[in-house]
Write a protein that binds this DNA or RNA. Structure first.
Lengths: 154, 154
DNA sequence: TTTTAAAAGCATCTTAGTTGCATTTATTTT
DNA sequence: AAAATAAATGCAACTAAGATGCTTTTAAAA
C-alpha cells in the first residue's frame, strides 16, 4: 500500500497521521509473517519510543487494523488484518502457524477454524488456533543441511 | 490421588520425592481448571521458592506429568496431564477455554482438536486451540446480577 | 554412615508490558 | 495564518514473568 493509502486508512479510523503510526503500518504491510513487538522495536530503533509503539499497536488492534497473535513464548505478534476487520469485530478466525525454529508466525488465511460446540453455560468468543511446528523455510534448510552432512560422511 | 500415589508417580519418572514437588502435585490434582504460575506462587507462599516452582513446573512438563497452556495474557497455566502423556509425547490435544472474566483456564477434554492439513512444506507439531469467552460460573453470575438489577429498577 | 548427584534456595538479571506526567504536534477554530 | 485544543508522543520509573549462576541442602545410593 502507498503512503497515501496508509494516510487514508488512518483518517478513516479517526486517527491522526503521525510518524510512529505510519512507520508501523509500513513495516507490517511489507511482511507476510506476523511480527513480534520486540522485533518491531528493534527495526524501529530509536525512531519511535517503546511506549509509543505499545500504544500504536494497541490502538491499531482496537480499530481493527492489525491483529495480535501470542506465540509459543507468550509474546505478542502482530499482522495486518484482512479487509473484513473493523473496530467492532475481528474476522481473523484463521489458523496461525508458529515455527519453533525461527519463531515466525504465519497467518494461514485459507485455513478456517472449525466450528466447535461449547459445553452448557460456556459462551464462546474469539477462537484461537495455533499450530506449532517447522515452517517451509526451516524444514528446507534442515533438509539441505542433512544432505550436505550425508555427502561429507560418505 | 493419595500421597503415596504422588510418590509412586515421581518414582516412575525418576524424580526425587521432595516437598516442593509433592506440594505442586497436591494443588494441581485438586483443581479442575488449570492454574497459573503466579497463582501457584501465591498459594504456596514462602513454602517454596519462586525459582524452584518454575523448575518444578518445567521438569513436570518435560516428564509429561503436567501440560502448559498460555492464557490470553501470555501467562503460563498448568494442568495435570491425562494418563496418555509421557516424557516422549503429550496427548493433550483437547480444546482449552479461557474465561475473559475470571481468567480461569478449563480443559475441555471431550472436545477433540480437528485434523488440519498444512500447506506444502509446513510440518505440524503440537496444535493449540483455545477459546476465549465467558465460563459457566461467570455467565451465571452475570445473569443473577442482571436479574437483581431488573428487580430493583422495577 | 558416608557419599554424591540432584534439587532447593538465594541473589541478581532480563525483558515484556504498564502507568503517570510533561511536552509536542496534527488538526480545528477563529 | 495564528491561536487553541485535544490527541499523541516521549520520558522516567515501575511491575511482573521468567531466567541464570552459584551455594547449600537433601534424598537416595553405596
Amino acid at each position: 500500500m502507498s503512503i497515501t493509502g496508509f494516510e487514508d486508512m488512518l483518517e478513516r479510523h479517526d486517527l491522526k497521521k503521525t510518524r510512529p503510526r505510519l512507520s508501523v503500518l509500513n513495516i507490517l504491510s511489507k511482511r507476510q509473517a506476523a511480527t513480534s513487538q520486540p522485533d518491531l522495536e528493534e527495526v524501529l530503533g530509536n525512531e519511535v519510543d517503546r511506549v509509543t509503539l505499545y500504544r500504536v499497536l494497541k490502538t491499531f488492534e482496537e480499530k481493527g487494523i492489525i491483529h495480535k497473535i501470542l506465540d509459543v513464548n507468550g509474546t505478542a505478534n502482530y499482522a495486518m488484518c484482512g479487509p473484513a476487520c473493523s473496530e467492532h469485530s475481528h474476522y481473523d478466525e484463521h489458523v496461525h502457524f508458529n515455527c519453533t525454529v525461527c519463531f515466525r508466525v504465519y497467518c494461514l488465511d485459507h485455513l478456517a477454524i472449525p466450528k466447535l460446540s461449547m459445553p452448557h453455560g460456556f459462551e464462546a468468543g474469539t477462537v484461537n488456533l495455533i499450530v506449532y511446528g517447522i515452517c517451509g523455510d526451516c524444514s528446507k534448510k534442515a533438509a539441505a543441511y542433512k544432505a550436505a552432512e550425508d555427502k561429507v560422511s560418505s
